[in-house]
Design a protein around this nucleic acid. Structure first.
Lengths: 196, 196
DNA sequence: AGCGTCATGTAATGTGTTACATGATTCG
DNA sequence: CGAATCATGTAACACATTACATGACGCT
């Protein structure tokens, strides 16, 4: 127990998906296998233990479906405590850590916050995400400028990748946040656009 | 033991850094703490066990510096086997997994390949990276198009983020690969550019 | 004398990966 | 009937995180 039962991206994904509608472990496995949401592991050795942990923490509860038949399924749903914990987690401010750590789940939090808390909260997450990146970028740029001249330039290329990637994230987050707050024109066909 | 001693980004980062020059565990901790390269953990509980594993695998060897004084340090360097293992690892083709998994170490591999194997190999990694993404993108786009209309659009926004991010990665990789093969004009001041 | 840094580690814990294990059902 | 899928799990292993632990050195 971490103090925080929603610790890993997988746990967050499970909670967020169960917030949409009740599902079984198998459903979640299939979902993570077929969908790119969260890049979560679809192995039973990850999903079932996670469900058990969340159930022991009182955040989800399982009900047996098709009890009399020979193929029962445990269908899990959020408990009121689980719903509260998820809302609390989604309501937290985005931190430097969220930006820095590689497997950051900010996008997942944005998606679920949009579903559960509404567009304004989702836009808030995007704005905080952009803010944190913009607070972090000067340090990266300083490191870039301070990169030793005599070393081969590939480390610098790696830094440049980070910097430009973060700048792209800021632009994406700011643009989408503005769209969400403006009442989102053109819902579809955005993935076709150029990304500059 | 995994069969593959260079399994995690941390291990790769350690090997790559030791390939530059011999360093102690403390040096590596300070490096990972101060630098953004690889976003590696700088905690002793990660670095020292990693060094021990690599030493047991015969890929690195430590020599005691300041042996007579009361503050000795273990300075590690690559063994010939370690050098071979690193070159082998860097020479491997980029896979779908490398693209998909969140903590992907492709950029780290690019950087070290540039240092150790030269610009052509680094450009090859970038090209394979872009190729793999372009093979993956149609699946993401299909998932995007197939996204249920009746659901709230935030899951779609998450997918759109992935798609546009991957497109950005392709452009970045292709551009840098071309520069490297062309003999890289203007080494500096690239991090200032727009990223379109 | 005390604090920060150098320098090394260990222990508990949580969690993901891989592989294995079981049995029913559905489809061809 | 055999293969794929539904549906659930367990066990061994590797690895990162966090916290703890030790002790010397340098500066004020």
């Amino acid at each position: 127990m971490n103090g925080d039962p929603i610790a890993s991206p997988l746990t967050l994904a499970v909670m967020g998906m169960l917030a949409q509608w009740p599902q079984s472990g198998y459903d979640l496995m299939k979902l993570f296998e077929s969908s790119a949401i969260g890049n979560c592991s679809s192995s039973p050795g990850a999903v079932y233990p996670a469900l058990k942990r969340l159930e022991e923490a009182g955040l989800i509860a399982g009900e047996v479906e098709n009890e009399d038949t020979l193929r029962p399924r445990q269908v899990y749903h959020l408990t009121p405590e689980g719903d509260a914990a998820l809302r609390d987690y989604l309501g937290r401010a985005i931190t430097r850590e969220d930006v820095t750590r590689s497997g950051g789940d900010v996008i997942l939090r944005f998606v679920f916050a949009g579903h559960i808390l509404g567009a304004e909260e989702a836009a808030r997450i995007l704005a905080e995400f952009a803010d944190e990146i913009e607070a972090y970028l000067p340090e990266l740029e300083a490191e870039y400028r301070g990169f030793p001249e005599d070393l081969p330039p590939f480390g610098r290329h790696g830094l440049e990748h980070s910097i430009q990637h973060y700048r792209w994230e800021v632009e994406w987050a700011r643009r989408l946040a503005a769209e969400l707050l403006a009442g989102k024109p053109r819902k579809r066909s955005r993935a076709r656009d150029a990304h500059g």
